[in-house]
Each structure stands twice: as C-alpha cells, then as structure tokens.
Design a protein around this nucleic acid. Structure first.
Lengths: 333, 333
DNA sequence: GTCTCACATTACATCGATGTAATAGCGAGG
DNA sequence: CCTCGCTATTACATCGATGTAATGTGAGAC
C-alpha cells in the first residue's frame, strides 16, 4: 500500500495537517519539525495522491491540449512545445484529438468540465462554430490560430499579412502567374480565408489582375489531398510561375507531384509553404516558408491560460506572434 | 457552482447512491427511477467529478504516454494512434516527454506513482536503463519498441529481421556497396544494435565481405544529424551503391544532402528508411521503407496495458507487430 | 392473512489532502 | 507570578462519488 499523509505524520510524530503544511509551505513550520517530516516523507517514499488533492483544492494541475490531428507535423511541433513549456511550469498535459469527428468536440467539452482539467488550449480548425460552446461553466480556454469569431483568449500568427508578404516575395523575382493551393469553397477555415485575402491583397498591390483559376482549392490541408488537387490542376492548366501552398505539409505534397511530372523547382516553378515545419528544411529542394517561433507561441498560450486561471485577466486578449519569410531553395532566392 | 450527485439526487427525489447506481449500471435500478434520475442529470447538466471518482475508486481513467520527443514524425504518428485507440476505449491520455533530459525520467516515474494515472505506455530510447525502476510500486507499464532488457510487457517490430530483409531488398538489384546510417558507437540504443546486426546478417548471407567504413554512425536519429553525418562521410569516402537509414527521418535528411551534392536517387545511389512515416511517401523521390501498422501497434499496446490493469495478465508478454518492405522510387524498384 | 424472499433503495463511512477554527506552547511586560 | 499576545500545531469537517450493510417494499406461497 502506498504511504499517505497519515503515515508520514505518524512516523514524524506530528499531525497530518503539519505534513500538508510542510508540502505547501504557506503556513509556517518550525525548522526541526520540517526536517523530521521531510525525512519521514523520504523514508516512506511518499508521493501525494493527486486525485485527493484535486478533489480538495478544486484544481488538478492538468491542462488539456486539443488538436485536430497529432500526426500532422505542424500539430506535433506545436504539441511538443506546449508540453515542454507546460512541464517546465509543473503542469501535466492531457491530449485530446478533435479529428474530423464533430462529436468528439462535444465529448471534449464534457470532459473539460469534468474537473480533471484546469484549462484548455484549443487549436480549432474544423470546429470554429463548436467553440461557441465555450461558455461560463467551462475552465479557461486559449485558442491557437485564426478563428472567425473571437470567443476566448487567443494566440495567432497574422495569416493575412504573412500570405501577403510571401506572395510579394515570390513576385520579387519577376514571377507573375502565382497560384495558391489550399483555398476552400464556401465557408472554410478562418486561416484559409485570411491567407487567400493576403494573397489577393498582394496581387492587387502588384497590379496583377486576379485570375480565379489560380486559386487551387484543397479542403483538407494534407500532402495527400494537396498532391491530388495539384495534379488535377496541372492536368487542365498551364504551369504557373509560382505556387504558394497554405501549409508546408501541402507544399511537400506539391513538390512530390511536381517532381514526378518532371517540373523543376525552382527553375520551372517556385514553391512556398507556411508554418516552417522541420521537414521543410530537408525537403527537396528545401522549402521557402512563413516562419514563426512556435516556442513563443506555446509560452504565450500558456501565459494567457495561467493568468486567466489565476483570475488576473479580464476581457478577451489576443497575442500576435511575429512571423518572417524564410527563403530557401524552392523559391530560387 | 457545478451540480453534484447530491443535487441530482435531490431533484430526482432519490438518494445520491441511487444516482451513482444509475451511472455505473452494476446495481439494478428500476426503470422509472432510472428515467427520473437520467432526466435530472440532463436538466442539471451534470458531469461527474473525475477527481472524486478517482479518489474513491483508486482509478483515474487516465493513462500516460511517454515519448522522447513529440515533434518527431514517428513519435507523432505513434502518439496519434495511441490517443485515438485510447479515446475509443474511454481512456484519457496524458503526454510525457522524456526528451534528452535524464532527470525527466525520474519525474515521470514519480508522477506515474501519484495515482493520477492507471498505466503507462513508454517508448524508451535514451532511457533503457532507467526503465529498471519499473518496480512493483508502479502502475502497469507497456514498452514500445526494442529494449536491451525485457522489463515489462512490450510491443515491438522485429528490427533485426526487418533490417536484414531491407538489406536483401537493396541488394536484389545488384547493389553491393550498401552503407547504413544510424549506427552508434559503444552502448547505443537497442534498435541501433539490432538493425546493425540485421544488416550484417544480410551482408554475410549475401557473401559480401563486411566493410566497417560503410557503417555511418549517427547518435541522434534526426534529419539534421543524419545530414551532417552523411555529408561528413561523403567528404572522405566514395559514394556507396545504396544507403539504408535506420529511420525515415534520417533518410529524409540524407535525400536532402544527396540532392544538394547532385547525386541522383536511385540512379547513383538507392536510399531506404525505416518506420514508413507519412512524409516518406511524399519525399523526393518517394522513400522505400520498412512499414508496419502503427494502429495495430497502438491497439496491442493498449490491450496489454488494460489486461494487466485488470489483473488478467501474468508474466512478461511480448507482442511482435508484422512488418513489410515497401519499395518506392528511392530504391529504383 | 401472514410469512418469506428477492430486489430496490438508503444511511453511513470512506478514499487522501487540506482549510478552518480551536488549542497548546512560550516569551515578554506589568 | 500572572496575563497577554503571538506562533506552531492539532482536531475536525470537507471536497464528490461509491462500497457496505442495513432497511424498506413488494409479490408469491402456504
């Protein structure tokens, strides 16, 4: 059986509450008593029961991280940084995948309210509208990325500005027929809309007439779907000068298709992505992309969350993470 | 304030225990009573407090997944499948990163014993020896992958066999100077040792004399380190016919270096990896690799874990997941 | 009509840690 | 020497859900 405060107390010859006081350090405990208790804890190999503590305190020390799909390189990198930062601050991280299953969102919210978690970092992609349920009965929530409605604290990268700057960077070398991959028809994700707008803003400012046919739709932002979408596009359209993919994952799928078709990157067509995932650096050719510090993103998200948990925050706060255009071989800089 | 069993009981005109009985369904509850209780739960938007339940039951419904680094594509894919399978079975998953910090392992074990988790799935890489601490006072543990000592239940892919088969597959097209990337000097990870042995077994059976210089060491299995290691190798050695990288991540780093040096894959050199990560399919050229079903791996790991949690398991059990050689463009099949 | 027996329901205690309020201990000032 | 006042420590109740043992309720058998 595992030791409890009671056991430690008995061994140290004090009351359970004194043991608790030693652990929490809020109430004064005399040096000799503290020493005896600490020794007893060590001897019994005492480890506090977090369920009991959570029940009593109403806090569990656990935060949840909800992402669409952990296997996506971008999500994985974000998760990595959040877990790392959270651990440094003593938080335990629970993973929730929202996937494509809309019911999962409901379960997630239910679980979020089951008191096992003190806060939630949510990367909404499919579930913009579901986030509406972020109500008063829920623990604090921080959103990651672009959204259509501002419903909670949020950390994001300026998709519109970044897409505009990337388009301008591609145009810099004289390329005019610039296509984008990843637009959505009808109501799409906030990121898709904003990145498309950024692209169009850049084309407008360059004085290049808009060409609807250069908007290559791709609902799911994966290499598979991107490859398929680009393949279909190339079957019926002339090759553009440049291709701006809305994520690096899509760009990797695109590079694969271009290579298979014998199109040289960047000679025949420049390619760029968004997110600066690790794989882009080792793509063939290495991928030009929109880069930002995911570590900063993670620590800002955690800061917002913990501040709100401590009731030291009011109103909805928004933190923008700086981005930069990183030009690698795929755009022939 | 959130509703508790007491509130639900009051509203339904029954005792708290009856509410509990309705939820757990072990004790018989008459249909009308059950209905009243369920209605009351719905009206009050009742959600059970998992801390309280965990305290009372000694079970939290949470399992931990410990990986070296969540940002690694392989780890991310494994995590994805484990989270997915676990969620289907109603488990909550907590993520722990063991990283390169050896002290993290200790914290991990401590946390594992804090009763917030009912079981642990551990992917040991750096921490073979630390797993020794897997003692009686710990919750059930399942190991993922190769280890040097059999310390707990385990799910793995036969690294030696797979490495042998891959080497044979590369040799099939007449290639004789086959190098491997990812060997370790001195005591390395179990996987590194076994894959090296598999390669050597294949070379022996082919009657090709061993050539120590073709063992390219690379301690950390990342694209960065692989690229560096391969670059250094190529600076001082003739180009081999084929290169078997011990992970797909390393292969991706390798492809990048080969391309930068103007070496054509597979014409000048065939390349293969191990793990069948999604990116490999979209590498340029697409990557030949050792493939296995990660979903099966995940569900087997969870099966072993839950069986042991239910005391329905004795002795140390080992499950081997089948692998296959998938030949894509990088080996010119 | 009464007695049994089976089953549904309840009162109470419990899991482990900790806040609250009361107590014990001790030194200084009158 | 006694009281006041401060600090370290303790006893007890509490968080919410659930197992245990006891109680209540009904149908069926004689």
């Amino acid at each position: 059986m595992r030791a409890t405060v009671k056991d430690v107390a008995r061994r140290a010859g004090v009351s359970p509450k004194t043991v608790s006081n030693v652990m929490n350090g809020i109430v004064q405990v005399s040096a000799p008593t503290r020493l005896r208790v600490e020794q007893a804890m060590a001897e019994l190999d005492y480890v506090p029961n977090l369920s009991a503590r959570g029940l009593r305190n109403g806090r569990s020390g656990v935060i949840a991280l909800a992402l669409p799909d952990l296997a996506t390189p971008y999500s994985a990198e974000v998760a990595h940084h959040i877990v790392e930062v959270a651990h440094e601050q003593g938080w335990i991280v629970q993973i929730e995948e929202t996937g494509s299953d809309p019911q999962r969102e409901q379960e997630l919210m239910t679980r979020a309210r089951s008191n096992l978690i003190d806060g939630l970092i949510l990367n909404p992609v499919v579930l913009d509208e579901s986030a509406v349920k972020v109500g008063v009965a829920l623990p604090p929530v921080v959103l990651l990325g672009e959204v259509t409605q501002q419903l909670a604290d949020r950390v994001f990268v300026d998709s519109l500005g970044a897409a505009r700057d990337m388009t301008l960077a591609l145009a810099k070398t004289g390329r005019k027929r610039i296509a984008v991959l990843g637009t959505t028809q009808g109501r799409g994700s906030a990121a898709a809309i904003l990145r498309t707008q950024g692209y169009e803003a850049a084309m407008d400012s360059l004085g290049i007439p808009r060409d609807e046919s250069l908007l290559i739709p791709c609902e799911k932002w994966t290499p598979e779907t991107a490859a398929k979408a680009l393949g279909a596009f190339l079957d019926t359209n002339p090759v553009p000068d440049a291709l701006f993919c809305f994520t690096d994952s899509m760009a990797i799928g695109a590079l694969s298709v271009l290579w298979k078709r014998g199109l040289r990157v960047p000679e025949d067509i420049a390619v760029a992505g968004f997110d600066d995932i690790a794989d882009g650096r080792y793509a063939v050719p290495s991928l030009t992309t929109v880069s930002f510090d995911k570590r900063t993103m993670a620590s800002e998200a955690l800061r917002l969350l913990t501040e709100r948990m401590g009731d030291r925050a009011h109103g909805q706060r928004v933190v923008s993470v700086e981005y930069s255009i990183v030009e690698r071989d795929s755009s022939g800089a």
